[in-house]
Computed example of a mutant assay.
Amino acid sequence: MDQSQVSAGGTLTYTITITNTGQVGFAAPANPAHISDNLTDVLDDARFDSATADRGRTTFTSPTLVWTGDLPIGATATITYTVTVDNPITDGDAMLDNSVTNTTPGLSDPPVETSTPVSAVDITKSADVERAVEGDVVTYQVVVTNTGNAAVQDIDFTDDLSDVLDDATWADVATSTGTATFTTPFLSWTGDLAIGKSTTITYRVVVNVPDRETSPWTTS
């Protein structure tokens, strides 16, 4: 794997290296080397993209990637394949568990296993009212949740309030964790979240006197 963890929507590259360390060579068609990679617990959170090998050939029939080929004494074969992680994570467990087995006849090596956690963040926003009039205080809440299987550092988002502040005046902001800053017209937040944890950013605006006869004001 090229990463210890992967983000939702990201690409993960796996590399399998097979080396003939014995005293018997393997040659197709009668006696090729053969491995099988079960991706069942990868594809619940991702989709298979493609595979290449520097010798032999690969075939993929979901959920299994198979490699077969010649492997003389002392020779090495390298198989590389990629998967793209779902975004959002919906049906899986946000963990890419992978197991490669040497299925060459006559050999019984133990499986080689890897586990890669998926980092995923969900952001929702709501207002405390659907409609407001001149002088009303409207309170917005943004909830950031770590929905993945890895702690996430330096999460950040920016909320463009251009279409709010043409009819309202900025009041204040508070956050349960991390740091929130406001520089017209952008609200920004940054922080860290452990697995399963959330933070809530709450900010308020005050509705201005309308420039035109449009009442009431909507918060959407």
Results as ranks from 00 to 15, higher is better:
117 P>D: 04
42 V>I: 15
41 D>E: 12
44 D>W: 04
57 R>Y: 15
79 I>E: 02
70 D>R: 02
27 A>T: 08
107 L>D: 12
20 N>P: 03
79 I>C: 04
107 L>A: 11
43 L>R: 08
64 T>V: 13
88 P>V: 13
59 T>C: 03
73 I>H: 03
82 T>N: 13
46 A>V: 10
103 T>R: 08
93 D>N: 15
56 G>E: 07
60 F>K: 00
107 L>M: 14
131 R>E: 13
19 T>N: 12
59 T>F: 07
9 G>K: 06
63 P>L: 07
16 I>E: 04
13 T>F: 03
106 G>E: 08
111 P>Q: 09
91 D>S: 15
15 T>W: 10
84 T>G: 05
15 T>M: 11
46 A>M: 14
112 V>Q: 14
36 S>V: 11
123 I>P: 03
110 P>Q: 12
86 D>R: 11
19 T>H: 08
70 D>H: 00
124 T>F: 04
91 D>G: 15
91 D>R: 15
27 A>W: 04
130 E>R: 14
39 L>H: 09
90 T>M: 11
38 N>S: 05
22 G>Q: 03
9 G>F: 08
72 P>T: 08
98 N>P: 03
79 I>P: 05
74 G>Y: 05
47 R>M: 10
69 G>F: 03
50 S>M: 07
20 N>K: 01
68 T>R: 12
35 I>H: 08
121 V>R: 05
77 A>S: 12
105 P>V: 05
132 A>G: 10
113 E>C: 02
11 T>K: 04
36 S>N: 10
47 R>H: 06
61 T>F: 05
89 I>V: 00
99 S>K: 11
106 G>P: 04
22 G>M: 02
65 L>A: 10
56 G>W: 06
45 D>T: 10
31 N>E: 05
126 S>E: 13
97 D>L: 04
16 I>P: 04
92 G>L: 11
98 N>A: 07
65 L>E: 04
86 D>M: 09
80 T>K: 15
69 G>V: 02
126 S>Y: 01
116 T>H: 11
92 G>Y: 11
23 Q>W: 01
72 P>H: 01
95 M>S: 09
68 T>Y: 02
113 E>M: 08
20 N>L: 02
108 S>R: 14
125 K>H: 05
109 D>A: 15
15 T>R: 13
73 I>S: 03
78 T>I: 15
115 S>N: 12
36 S>L: 08
114 T>G: 09
27 A>N: 07
105 P>M: 11
33 A>E: 01
68 T>D: 12
12 L>Q: 06
61 T>K: 08
9 G>C: 07
75 A>V: 01
127 A>M: 05
10 G>D: 06
26 F>Q: 00
42 V>K: 13
83 V>D: 07
32 P>L: 10
116 T>V: 15
109 D>R: 07
10 G>Q: 09
122 D>T: 14
88 P>F: 13
40 T>P: 00
77 A>N: 05
14 Y>Q: 10
11 T>S: 12
119 S>T: 07
107 L>F: 13
10 G>N: 06
27 A>E: 10
45 D>L: 07
67 W>G: 01
15 T>I: 11
31 N>V: 00
95 M>C: 01
31 N>W: 00
107 L>Y: 14
129 V>C: 11
61 T>M: 02
19 T>D: 07
77 A>D: 06
132 A>V: 07
119 S>F: 03
49 D>E: 14
